[in-house]
Design a protein around this nucleic acid. Sequence first.
DNA 1: ACGAGCGATACCGTGGAGGTATGGATGGGC
DNA 2: GCCCATCCATACCTCCACGGTATCGCTCGT
Lengths: 298, 298
Amino acid sequence: MDGLEAREVAYFVAVAEELNFSRAANRLGIAQPPLSRAVKQLERRLGVVLLERTSRRVTLTAAGQVLLNEGRRALDALAAAARRAQRAGQQDPRLVLVTKAVGDGGMLPEILAAYESEPDAIKVDVLFCGFGEQTVLLRSGVADVGLLHGRPDLTGLDFEDLLVEHQIAVLPARHRLAGRAAVTLADLDGEAMPRFAGMRHDGTEGPEVHDAGQLMQLIAMGRTTAILPESARGYLAGDLVCVPVLDAPPSTMMIAWPEQSRSPALATFVRAATDVAARRRVRCGPDSGYDGNQLRDS
Amino acid sequence: MDGLEAREVAYFVAVAEELNFSRAANRLGIAQPPLSRAVKQLERRLGVVLLERTSRRVTLTAAGQVLLNEGRRALDALAAAARRAQRAGQQDPRLVLVTKAVGDGGMLPEILAAYESEPDAIKVDVLFCGFGEQTVLLRSGVADVGLLHGRPDLTGLDFEDLLVEHQIAVLPARHRLAGRAAVTLADLDGEAMPRFAGMRHDGTEGPEVHDAGQLMQLIAMGRTTAILPESARGYLAGDLVCVPVLDAPPSTMMIAWPEQSRSPALATFVRAATDVAARRRVRCGPDSGYDGNQLRDS
DNA sequence: ACGAGCGATACCGTGGAGGTATGGATGGGC
DNA sequence: GCCCATCCATACCTCCACGGTATCGCTCGT
């Protein structure tokens, strides 16, 4: 009748992840017998068997699978609630913006300036992180708002598109295509492409990269190439060149924030960011993303 | 250090909703002193003041506001996890579909037939409910999948559009516009329109309706009129007539399900539904929703 | 000024969470 | 084939904390 206790669910999740009571108990910092009891009690309350235990192996039932998924989400939500309340509670409230190093489309300074000129602006902490970590930080309540690229998993987040950019290939200086004025995806067929950590896996093979520096280094070494939004141009290290990719799908940069957490500060910030993006779109023409570029006339 | 307990959060939410410890305690079925202590302990753990109490009035702090919002969501997620696990656990698994009485766009029988002809189909329970209850039932784990109309709040849900329909005005038989072959929104200006319970409030005034029967009755009584999707035609009671509304925005019917709960059965069902909708779109022409109608040539 | 309403405090009893010791089953090693 | 390691369940104990009752202190309405 009474709702579940978070502790019980956390215990179950630990067991379900380890598939081993002793290890799970160890991880939780408790002894194994209380853990066995707690899980059994959870099963009794739900009236459902969650784990099939032989004395040798633990496996998840269908119900267990469901509770593992949903329970994790619920626990995350609870932890995020706590963190957000804590952050909202301390005076001198901050807005934490998370982006990756080359992921701001070159608009970050402008967005920050626009927001800071708002009358009710509060301080903004900018947090740079590796690829794919943004959504995690947003969901967990560490960050309030993020600038994202690509097609990350956005469940639990609200978002708005900011900027559509054409894409460029980043190549080592002595690459066979480095001299070209433009290339197509067909030209790049067979090139190694990095897997961006945290992105939805799209089956491509290649080195896994976590931040822009790594990526640039790998490209300079000739170990991979990359297709990036036009705005990445400004971040190129010395030995790299970039070439427009004519037929690459445009890359969308968006601003995202935790679902339904529209605090006044957040709302103001989102509006400031979309305003900046709108101004930039007007300045650069309605159909294009980043500033005027040679794709327009092709 | 340790994560929050669900009980504490539930207690806090009750107090925050009532803004009165005694009433909240009563609602929770406990005495007032333990509730005071629990909330205070929660505040101590978070290191944040959630409630400003004078001995006369209780108000929420900013942090309290945040925890009220986020905590409610987290508790919902926890309860939903429990219910879904329970449902997944019982043998003879069912898929619970929720729709409102006139909300299926006339496709429900066809969708059910399509799904049931799938090799791995399981039993489908169809649950009819009042306007705006679908999203609640989906989020709370009572239902697995729903057919929705209008623009309900879809946070926490994934969805796919099924069908775009033109809209018709439903009028009492002796209404001044009842004889018209078609009307525009301007014609209907000033008419009473119902407020659909659970929809986002769009400022309209009028009686609040919870189900189709109520609505039809109110229309027949001349107390209100309504703009409904074309497919509602089939559900009209005796004394009502309907007239196409030429310039009403098309109404989108969609299928929605809890975020990230793509069980195999659900995935199959969603695919069956989208297939049916796709076939219908092809049958009726690419630009329109419900079957061919006089709007095409206007 | 007094009483009603409300939250905080003090104190107590019990249920349950967690610990230790141990049993019972299973599978791998020799 | 025997034995031991592994692993989950059971039994039993301890103690904290959750909930209850009684009461205080403050505040506002009359």
